[in-house]
Design a protein around this nucleic acid. Structure first.
Lengths: 116, 116
DNA sequence: GCGCGTTGCTTGGTTTACTTAGCGCATCGG
DNA sequence: CCGATGCGCTAAGTAAACCAAGCAACGCGC
């Protein structure tokens, strides 16, 4: 109830940074892909600024993420109302044709141990 | 390919205006519900500015709209392209908010070792 | 040691989002 | 006819998003 302007920004920033590192990209690499300056990306990742929808979208595309996911992390979208495939990891694992039954089972077990 | 910054803003604005009128609200009424000044709302509805995430969200809530619908109408979200294959396990893992970075990394490693 | 390339970050400025005060036009009572 | 009240909009200012240039620190090869 107190702070509406949360530390949500910081969470978003950390998420973006982790995704960028996953993709093995430097700030300048991402900058080039998004047409957003690298200092500003740095500031976003540290939670110093609230990026616009335009910037959020270009970042999501550059990192091969669903734009919706990005908006959820930004606090714009609440993950309750979504179209089609919710980013439900369990469902994705369950229906992944590339996994054998054993693999599927152990992957699910690991996932569930993480999420409780 | 001249106009990249399109009339998307205008479409968004017109959509908001129509929704506001349907709810029988004046600019000042909406202003009070959203804590956004009425002149600025006016400008948004005429497509002069791109509202921030915060403003967009408060407008959607005040008008009982899905934020997503608004973004689709605005052309800021392509309601088809993003989630693509609903069964993209990697994407699901990568964007799962319930996982920590470490957990995400190891789960991905396991998955990749399975699928080669 | 000496560059050289790459990383993330700071600084200072421009552009754009956003607010407060106020204008002009309607409508409705007195 | 004249306030008073409601509407949307304009004008001018402040705050915040965003960019270009450059700094400091980490490697790596010489």
């Amino acid at each position: 109830m107190p702070d509406d302007g949360f530390n949500q920004l910081q969470q978003l920033g950390e998420f973006i940074r982790s995704q960028r590192k996953q993709a093995q990209l430097s700030l300048r690499d991402l900058s080039e892909k998004t047409n957003v300056s690298n200092p500003y990306l740095s500031q976003i990742e540290r939670g110093l600024h609230e990026p616009s929808v335009r910037v959020l979208k270009s970042i999501a595309i550059a990192l091969n993420l669903s734009v919706e996911t990005m908006l959820v992390r930004a606090g714009l979208l609440n993950e309750d109302d979504d179209i089609g495939g919710p980013t439900d990891t369990e469902a994705a694992i369950q229906s992944d044709p590339r996994l054998s039954d054993d693999q599927r089972a152990s992957l699910l077990a690991v996932y569930r141990s993480y999420t409780g």
